[in-house]
Design a protein around this nucleic acid. Structure first.
Lengths: 232, 232
DNA sequence: TGCCGTGATCTGTGATCACAGTTATCGTCT
DNA sequence: AGACGATAACTGTGATCACAGATCACGGCA
């Protein structure tokens, strides 16, 4: 009996179906901006590219369509949705509020190890934004790592999931912009606001953390809106 | 050419696939509480019950699983997730903030016709909560209609969608509770808080609307938590 | 040269089959 | 009678086939 106990105790074992893997793959492509608004896909081409059958792709795509991260037009065309200017503004407002809530909650509920993790992510991003010729893909990933380190520290997994859905929508726009305006990394106010958020979370000051994260989100959104690359 | 113009102007034509219909069907069952936490389903039984093949059900279920409205256990069992006490508390906090934001936004952005629609929904709910032997299913639907009339008036469809996902999670718990404690309809503070929210939205007072909706949500959640029917 | 019909090709959607793994049932043995 | 074990039924997952509808390119008519 002890052998069985030993096995069962070491088996969290959440299985990864092929559909889950395909979902994670396309999701990464979207958040990192490698799939840009307007890009078209097809179930069969994705299936061939990933070396799987059409079924797991269908499962993954149906989830992404439900998330509004992809859309199926009435013409049966599958593509990354275009984001209208108005919608991008609205999403920035929503994100500032929701991610601000997560940051405030993180300041109140974070554990010590979470603080060190956030600090490490903040340092990585700061170093990268000061580098002479920063790797943009890495910068995007570092920014994401910092933000979600904060959000995870909120202790509200349902909230983190909602934020993940929001990033899935704005990811293509934000990262496509960063790729075209790399100077924003150095000149933007992201790095100091991250440092401010980290300090607030360390001090347990919820309102200060909320304001820092909200300002970070609004700053990036305002920059992109000023470049006016969005339709409408 | 004028004939073509006449045709194209009258064709929004968003098609409803079978998968969409099955999704909407199961979603209604969940939000109205007819599928309770712990209930088990199977793809084939649902397909047979709805008279369709297994495929549309798979598509609908995969979306609901992504929404955490259903779960597939490692044993390949498909069921409505149990909600832990802590998660329900967290969701109430999140809902108060997010739905409060929607209410505040509604107070600032609502149109005249939206105000009349909200007022109509408020009146229907008030009448029903005062009735001697109220139809519980209808009461649940009226409550939902009022809340979403408010949220729609925010002019933020992305926010409404997020709230829909939250209701999908808490729906089974809330409506199961209401079914077992029908007296809460009359004794609870839902009706006056709805009236307060309506008045605030009519006056364009965002903060008052936010507080009223947040209080409504917290009131219902506190009642359910006091009944202590949730595990953990 | 410009426009429109037409067929080949590709699209997502739905149905059916195959399979490995689990659960439940029933018969058998002690 | 009670516990065990084999077998049958059922589970979600994945692959393959079928189909209606849409797109695109090519060719013929004006």
């Amino acid at each position: 009996m002890s052998a069985i106990k030993a096995l069962s105790s070491a088996a969290p074992l959440e299985r990864q179906t092929l559909g889950d893997q395909v979902y994670a793959h396309i999701r990464r492509l979207l958040i990192s901006g490698r799939l840009a608004p307007g890009d078209r896909l097809s179930l069969r081409s994705v299936a061939d590219a990933l070396g799987v059958s059409m079924m797991p792709v269908r499962e993954a795509v149906s989830r992404l369509v439900a998330d509004r991260a992809l859309e199926v037009t009435p013409n049966r065309a599958l593509r990354v949705p275009e984001m209208r200017r108005r919608q991008f503004q609205d999403l920035a407002l929503i994100r500032a509020e929701i991610e601000g809530l997560a940051a405030a909650s993180a300041a109140l509920n974070r554990t010590a190890s979470q603080v060190t993790e956030i600090a490490a992510a903040e340092q990585r991003f700061r170093m990268l934004s000061r580098a002479r010729d920063p790797d943009l893909v890495e910068a995007v990933e570092c920014n994401q790592a910092f933000h979600f380190a904060v959000y995870e520290a909120s202790g509200l997994p349902d909230l983190v999931e909602i934020i993940g859905g929001l990033w899935l929508k704005v990811g293509p726009v934000i990262n496509l912009d960063l790729r075209e305006n790399p100077e924003r990394l150095a000149t933007g106010s992201a790095a100091p606001l991250h440092a401010e958020a980290l300090a607030a979370i360390r001090d347990g000051d919820g309102e200060r953390a909320r304001k820092a994260i909200a300002a970070d989100i609004r700053g990036a959104a305002d920059f992109i809106l000023s470049r006016n690359r969005l339709p409408d």
